[in-house]
């Protein structure tokens, strides 16, 4: 294999890693706010991507507003999921496995719904900054990839600022750490959880919109995206957006190495295997966890 092909695989792996990081961050946002692992996070991405494609191509909305519509669709979906399903289950204090079954069921339903409404086709978005490529290490990288990485980094920073400085962000964080304490301090815990789901949905949709120009989106890809995002998130320790970026890189590069070393069919196997091994060997993620559990 030539160096050009090697770098081609590596750089596209690194690009993908930011998509996984964004999915992982969405998962982490929801986990942080609700202690639920959302097994339909990948569906937010698929819905966001497909809504943007339809807004752009079927209704002629310009690119930027179309992307905003896609993000709004993700947020709206998160909102609906929370109000219709999560709230009643939280009220009856359902167990962890019930929430998992719920979100798996929703992933299945949304995927089937997309199949019904948009069919088996894959939908491609035009890249941000056009369809040009830039040469780097004898490899050709789409201009869009740079945008993808840049936007992802901006999102990570914005989320960090949001949780540290904005009142809503602080309330959302407080709700997850100590729901009863938050409630006694006048925070509307239920509402914060809804915001959390909407935010998770928006971040997920953004991931879908960013990935659509590179690999296209189809009704079927949600579950794999969820798993890789989850892999990125747990590699990063599940609470830390920067950790998710590092985790995403590990997954993206593992995939690239599998593509280079074996064949592209083994890409997902590499990602899943890394995820399982990390969960067993490093339960707190590669960056470790800052504080010990007290008690």
């Amino acid at each position: 294999m030539s160096w050009g092909l090697f770098w081609q695989a590596m750089l596209s792996g690194i690009t993908n890693s930011f998509v996984y990081a964004l999915i992982g961050i969405g998962l982490a946002v929801i986990f942080k706010g609700t202690k639920v692992i959302n097994a339909m996070q990948g569906e937010f991405a698929v819905v966001g991507g497909i809504v943007t494609v339809f807004a752009l191509q079927a209704y002629g909305v310009p690119y930027f507003p179309a992307a905003l519509i896609g993000i709004a669709a993700g947020a709206l979906l998160g909102l609906i999921v929370d109000i219709l399903f999560v709230r009643p289950m939280m009220r009856r204090k359902a167990g962890e496995e019930s929430f998992l079954l719920l979100t798996i069921g929703l992933a299945f339903t949304i995927s089937a719904g997309l199949l019904y409404f948009v069919g088996r086709d894959s939908y491609l978005l035009p890249g941000i900054g056009g369809s040009g490529v830039v040469e780097m290490f004898d490899a050709f990288i789409p201009v869009h990839s740079y945008w993808l990485v840049g936007i992802s980094v901006v999102v990570v920073i914005l989320l960090r600022l949001f949780y540290t400085y904005s009142l809503t962000g602080l309330a959302m964080a407080a709700t997850s750490i100590d729901p009863i304490g938050a409630a006694t301090n006048g925070i509307n815990v239920t509402l914060m959880r809804t915001y959390t789901f909407a935010l998770g949905g928006a971040v997920g949709a953004l991931a879908g919109i960013l990935v659509a120009p590179l690999v296209s989106v189809n009704y079927h890809m949600g579950i794999a995206l969820t798993l890789k995002g989850f892999a990125a998130a747990i590699l990063g320790g599940l609470a830390n957006p920067i950790g998710a970026v590092v985790g995403g890189l590990v997954i993206g590069i593992s995939e690239a190495l599998a593509v280079i070393g074996i064949s592209s069919g083994y890409k997902d196997i590499a990602a899943m295997t890394v995820m399982i091994i990390v969960m067993i060997v490093m339960p707190n993620g590669i960056l470790g966890r800052a504080g010990r559990r007290g008690g």
Partner: peptide
């Protein structure tokens, strides 16, 4: 919990 379930999904 979640972690085991997602590990079985990955498998």
């Amino acid at each position: 919990g979640f972690f085991l379930a997602l590990a079985t999904l990955a498998i």
